[in-house]
Nucleic acid binder design. Structure first.
Lengths: 152, 152
DNA sequence: TTTGTCTTGCGACCCTGTCCCATTATAGTC
DNA sequence: GACTATAATGGGACAGGGTCGCAAGACAAA
């Protein structure tokens, strides 16, 4: 696990260097937080709080800038669950993401399920002349723990 | 077209009355704007601008309140295309919406396509114990006019 | 060491949206 | 029509998330 983390970190360092950018301590701390919370779908604010523990002097703007940078580098992905905050998630490779989200309307938990759309995109491209580069699917409802509770 | 509009307006008036609420001139103006721009996916700000033309003295807060009210009454639906603003769309009936969106990354145009998920929800409910009440699907890419242009 | 560039932290600021509150409009009753 | 209770309004203050400009700091290359 730890070697994998270091490996990924080196990989990102190279990505940055290729663009004449640096993996500064602040950026490294941010990446580490994201790597250590891959299942978390953290918001920028949450990332900021966690990074503060590693690097107390870091500024909020730096975290935002780093997240934006990582999105541009396609290292992470910016997600939108409709709760008013942007959330971030690692991208396993350079592909568009192909998993989908189950969003619980009671507890807010977000879990992931495999891709469902299969070759549907091809049909849409043909029928609508629309060149698809990515898709987002979210199912809203109640997770197994919250079934029958209604909205919080 | 105009009779249909009046009919819908009466329908909404009744809905409001059933809750001891009134269809005030401000609310009526807001509903009219929404009815006249059913394909527009208007943001609150856009609705406000258009309503101002009909009723120049209306306040922004009133428009927001009216939109929220109409969402509660399930007359309209609040949509989120990830561009940082809420958008609103009429609901044809009392069902959860079952059409999906094609969002063009170049010109921002949003078009609609029919429901794609069919009975997929049942499978997910079984497999994940997740009680689904709605779903959102968006495909991102380039519409027929913008193909090959890349992001704006 | 010097220089140029990338980064940073900070605070000001922007934007969408909500809240509070005093005032006004409305429907229902007499 | 007058009265009353309640719904609704406009305006401004405010909140949360996020961006921007800028002066200062860190770093790599020469």
């Amino acid at each position: 696990m730890d070697e994998k983390l270091m490996e990924r970190l080196q990989q990102i360092r190279k990505l940055l260097h290729a663009e004449q950018l640096k993996l500064t301590p602040q950026r490294e701390a941010t990446v580490r937080v994201l790597l250590e919370n891959q299942e978390g779908h953290l918001s920028a604010e949450e990332v900021f709080m966690l990074v503060k523990q590693k690097a107390p002097d870091i500024g909020l703007a730096t975290v935002y800038r780093t997240l934006e940078l990582l999105v541009d580098l396609r290292v992470i992905e910016k997600l939108n669950f409709g709760d008013g905050v942007a959330r971030y998630e690692f991208r396993e490779n350079d592909q568009p993401h192909h998993h989908h989200h189950l969003i619980c309307l009671n507890c807010g938990r977000v879990s992931e399920i495999e891709d469902l759309l299969g070759d549907l995109e091809k049909k849409i491209e043909e029928r609508h002349g629309f060149q698809i580069t990515d898709h987002r699917v979210s199912f809203l409802g109640y997770c197994s723990r919250c079934r029958g509770k209604g909205p919080a």
